[in-house]
């Protein structure tokens, strides 16, 4: 009972953090509230018994990916975004109104779903490692290749190169 109440409160705080991220105009504030949301999310993973996921959420997401985001925001001086629209058009109202019934219908379906009763044993780290390297070995190796590709791509694209063919040069035709 206490677990359920705590989990509900945490989920509500998490939704609040993510909504703040969508609404706040300053970029650093948005990143900071997203980091707060990730910390809450890690806490929720711990509650659900996914300890490995909780730890790597902080190490990878909040501690590496968001650091890169914050770096880029601070180095590029991303401008404070003006609040999107002052007058709300019909499309906005319709989109939000139409999403609410979808949410409600799917939530009702989820709440009525009978979860299978599986005997609870704690998932140890060794089980995760065993499964990762035996059942999921092929996706693991592909992901490592994907990371290598992303690394090469990011360095190539962001490299400071004076002779870039696609740079805008004043007074010359583009792309040559």
């Amino acid at each position: 009972m206490i677990m359920t109440v705590t989990l509900t409160i945490l989920c509500l705080l998490l939704i609040l953090c993510f909504v703040t991220t969508s609404i706040i105009p300053t970029p650093v504030g948005a990143c900071a509230s997203l980091i707060g949301g990730f910390l809450l999310l890690s806490f929720i993973y711990g509650f659900l018994g996914a300890h490995f996921a909780a730890v790597i959420q902080i190490i990878v997401y909040a501690g590496a990916i968001m650091v890169v985001f914050v770096f880029v925001v601070m180095l590029l001086n991303v401008p404070t975004q003006d609040l999107p629209k002052v007058k709300i058009s019909l499309a906005d109202i319709l989109s939000i109104l139409l999403s609410i019934p979808v949410l409600i219908l799917v939530s009702i379906k989820i709440l009525n779903w009978q979860a299978p009763m599986i005997d609870s044993q704690n998932v140890e780290m060794k089980d995760i490692a065993r499964k990762m390297f035996i059942d999921y070995l092929w996706p693991f190796e592909l992901i490592s290749f994907l990371l290598l590709t992303a690394l090469v791509a990011a360095i190539t694209v962001a490299h400071k190169n004076k002779g870039s063919r696609y740079m805008l040069k004043e007074g010359s035709d583009h792309g040559r």
């Binding site: 730890v55 190490i59 909040a62 590496a64 914050v70 601070m74 140890e124």
Partner: peptide
């Protein structure tokens, strides 16, 4: 004492980067 052991340590040291970054900014 959780199953993740000393990985929590790395989590804390990853979060301490923000202190320096935010202080500088």
């Amino acid at each position: 004492s959780v199953g993740a052991g000393f990985l929590l340590f790395f989590a804390m040291s990853s979060m301490s980067v923000y202190g320096v970054t935010l202080a500088g900014w």
